[in-house]
Nucleic acid binder design. Structure first.
Length: 373
DNA sequence: AATGGTTTCAACCGCAATCAC
DNA sequence: GGTGATTGCGGTTGAAACCAT
């Protein structure tokens, strides 16, 4: 794939020439930098460095931004006189100016709006201020419980499509919903042990090693502690997102465990008979050399995947939300993040990990008396 | 009251999609 | 169909508000 930039017509070029006279060496520099810019992806700092070295620091600093604008030409600045534009919080006077102008002329042509309205703001900033704050149909104030439920439900279907979520919550903006999600709902879900990305309970909150240890003990087996740690280390089991990784790290600090598995229900049988395989129906363990084939129901045998939040919300009266194709096609396995492929891959890989060739299965299990506390 | 840490949310940024010519 | 302009979107930032000590 080529990395070239398209250089526009000459009038575009002349319109962007700096107001100060260019030195001949600067013109040469521009040409050189233009070639560099066309053939590589360099940023302003790199250009500044090059420019400093070719022109001398005292002269370069003020000019380099303008020159860089010429070099990158492919993208016009979003506003004219960007340097003199005001940024930061809007004053009541500015708000009034914007409101008055939009009442008279309507919310259109944001590029010329600030100039016509007498605002020293970027058009983009005006649009955002209007859309997120000044629009008359915006509902301010705290989100109701109903709104919160709707957001959670929609997020489980749509993910971070804030504008789509906002479209179904009259009076709320995408920005507001996004902020509310990040500051309130997300935290609350985490506190409840629900993954805010997948909307499923987080198995990584379980101490897998202690579960395994107690089961091994019940079975009269002793597991080599090193192997136990190895088997429950996230590196062996797929890590799918940073959040899980972070939490896994936290848990690891305490317990040296916590693979970030994402089941909505995890059933650990209270009794395991000799007939039941230790790893039971957890699927093909996928070991390249030592494949522990699935057999009877066992420790992981009764794992069931259910719609947790979605089931919980079924009776909450949000029928206005039409099911998406994904929802309609989904089986009982319901992982709401990533693409279909990612989800499929993740689910099928949950228990796929490799045991090194040098590993002797006897290192894992050895018959010793149960541990006593 | 002062200080430092945390939370909140308006505003910004960069990119992509869409529109207009 | 190509190009530049405009708009929309999601992630991120940072100042102000809030809270704990």
């Amino acid at each position: 794939m080529s990395n070239t930039k398209t250089f526009p017509k000459s009038d575009f070029f002349t319109a962007r020439l700096p107001s100060f006279p260019l030195l001949s060496r600067e013109i040469v520099s521009i040409s050189v930098f233009a070639i560099i810019a066309m053939t590589s992806s360099i940023d302003l700092l790199q250009v500044e460095e090059l420019y400093n070295s070719s022109l001398g620091k005292s002269e370069a600093t003020e000019r380099v931004k303008c020159l860089w604008d010429i070099i990158k030409m492919g993208r016009a600045p979003c506003c004219e006189n960007k340097g003199s534009l005001k940024k930061g919080p809007w004053t009541p006077e500015e708000d009034l100016q914007l409101i008055n102008y939009i009442h008279l002329h309507g919310p259109a042509n944001w590029r010329t709006l600030p100039k016509n309205a007498g605002l020293r703001r970027c058009g983009k900033s005006c649009r955002l201020r209007w859309a997120n704050y000044l629009r008359p149909d915006i509902k301010r104030g705290r989100f109701s419980l109903e709104e919160e439920d709707i957001i959670i439900q929609l997020h489980s279907v749509l993910g971070n499509k804030w504008s789509a979520i906002a479209g179904r919550l009259p009076g709320r903006t995408d920005n507001e919903i996004k902020n509310y999600w990040n500051t309130h709902i997300r935290k609350r879900l985490l506190q409840m042990g629900i993954d805010p990305v997948t909307h499923t309970p987080r198995l990584d909150l379980f101490d897998i090693s202690s579960i395994l240890r107690s089961v091994f003990t019940m079975q009269g087996l002793f597991m080599n502690p090193n192997m136990l740690n190895l088997a429950t280390t996230p590196s062996l089991l797929s890590l799918k997102n940073d959040e899980n990784h972070d939490l896994a790290s936290q848990n690891t600090a305490q317990t040296q465990v916590s693979p970030p598995l994402e089941f909505t229900q995890f059933h650990v049988p209270t009794q395991i008979t000799n007939e039941e395989g230790l790893f039971g129906n957890m699927g093909n363990l996928g070991c390249s050399n030592h494949v522990l084939q699935q057999n009877q129901v066992g420790l992981f045998g009764d794992m069931a995947f259910v719609h947790s939040l979605n089931n919980a919300n079924q009776n909450m009266g949000h029928d206005s939300v039409p099911p998406t194709p994904k929802e309609l096609n989904s089986s009982s396995i319901y992982v709401n993040c990533g693409t279909e492929e990612e989800r499929d891959s993740y689910c099928s890989d949950l228990f796929n990990f490799e045991i090194p060739e040098t590993l002797n299965i006897g290192d894992i299990f050895c018959s010793v008396p149960p541990l006593s506390n």
